[in-house]
Design a binder for these strands. Structure first.
Lengths: 232, 232
DNA sequence: GGTTTTTGTAACGGTTTTATGACGGCATAG
DNA sequence: CTATGCCGTCATAAAACCGTTACAAAAACC
């Protein structure tokens, strides 16, 4: 086992898969830790300073989903990127369950090349800030790769502009953006757009979210702008 | 290590993060000092004339929060800008706990570009006066980026004018501002405003604060004006 | 104590800002 | 070519905020 490479924890109940992953990551110079159950994985997380977790969706006892939640609940492990491994048919569940805080996901069967790329991106992300594919705020999640937005277990359909708008907001939750800032970032350089148009789109976004949410996710800051900020 | 650049102290327990930060700051020409625990950091602060501190929120022994408090308690280190590094999920705690006196905060995952920008802003601030994002007085905090005011752990909603007013006051705590000074700074150049209007707004501000506070935060100086000054 | 001056505050009307429904234009898909 | 969905603007409604006034309360002065 290489010493000094980034520490990756694999949680996967199927031994053959586990071996395959382990081997490939080892070859790439990662320091690999293995677990066959979620519980085992959590134990390792407490003992070792893991840099990234590969977590199978389906696990014998506690599900990967629940394990992910626990990882994200604990302050000491929260910032560790988690990549979920999920079988093709589980995609729908995944959409619903992405509010666990996972940073990315890979659908089986995956190519090793893709997996390694995502692992690299995940590590880069933890350190730098790029490569995020899932954005979350409270129970709101945006899957950038699939262009899907969920609130809790409900899928929300947004138009392109609304999607962009929400993305800006969710990338810096609670921060207030002025209408002009939003115009600049969402509408790019379209100069011939009224400032008030932002209001309308915020309104549309709000309506869609509130149709599902238990509380308003968008805060209006009078005289300044808007922010993604769930109050209750 | 470059000699002569501004001295930045990084306190971060995760070695990979520490290295990453260190490297990037070094490249930018800063004189970097590293610590893996708060205690270590405080020691360095006493020995070296640090210009800015990057402080991780979560630290093994004493928390970053507590370290920040200690930095701000000591007269010799009080004026050094502190930027807190905090994970996404800790945001709520942060809003509540920002009465530590930190000057700014960055939410992980952050882009290096953003971090460097904030470091520059922090240094500029220390020397000039711009770039502060968090203002505090006793247990009252204003988060300018988020446009949120907290007293203890309660969020207080203020209108635009009240917000501006409080900002002027909190930027120079205990200093007394005359009604005319406040008119000039809060109402800018609006000439057609009665002097007594200030009273009313101070009153409104007071009411909102006192609804939550244990003591009056605004002191009336008869014949002169007002100041932010908690008596009891 | 009584008077004067200054400050506190409730209340009101007016203004500004934001929310929202409706409409026509435009593009794209069928 | 028609239907559908999305977008930008406008008009109007609703809400939040602001400045003033009037009177009550407090402090200062004699």
């Amino acid at each position: 086992m290489t010493i000094g490479g980034p520490k990756v924890l694999i949680v996967e109940d199927e031994p053959s898969q586990l071996e395959l992953l382990s081997y490939n990551l080892d070859v790439e110079g990662y320091d690999v830790y293995k677990a066959e159950t979620g519980e085992e994985g959590l134990l390792i997380l407490q003992e070792v300073e893991i840099d990234l977790v590969l977590l199978d969706w389906m696990l014998p006892q506690t599900s990967g989903l629940e394990i992910c939640r626990q990882i994200k609940r604990d302050k000491t492990t929260r910032s560790i990127p988690v990549i979920m491994l999920t079988a093709r048919g589980e995609e729908d569940d995944k959409v619903r369950g992405l509010d666990t805080g996972a940073n990315d996901y890979i659908v089986k069967p995956y190519s090793i090349k893709e997996l390694l790329a995502r692992v690299r991106a995940g590590l880069r992300n933890a350190k730098g800030g790029l490569g995020v594919n899932i954005l979350t705020y409270k129970s709101l999640t945006m899957d950038l790769r699939r262009h899907v937005v969920c609130l809790g277990d409900k899928v929300i359909h947004l138009g392109p502009l609304e999607f962009k708008l929400l993305r800006i907001l969710i990338e810096a939750p609670a921060r207030v953006f002025s209408r002009d800032q939003l115009l600049e970032r969402v509408w790019s350089n379209a100069l011939e757009v009224e400032t008030r148009t932002v209001d309308v789109h915020i309104g549309r976004l709000r309506k869609q979210l509130n149709a599902v949410a238990d509380a308003d996710y968008i805060r209006t800051v009078r005289g300044f702008g808007y922010s993604l900020d769930k109050v209750a």
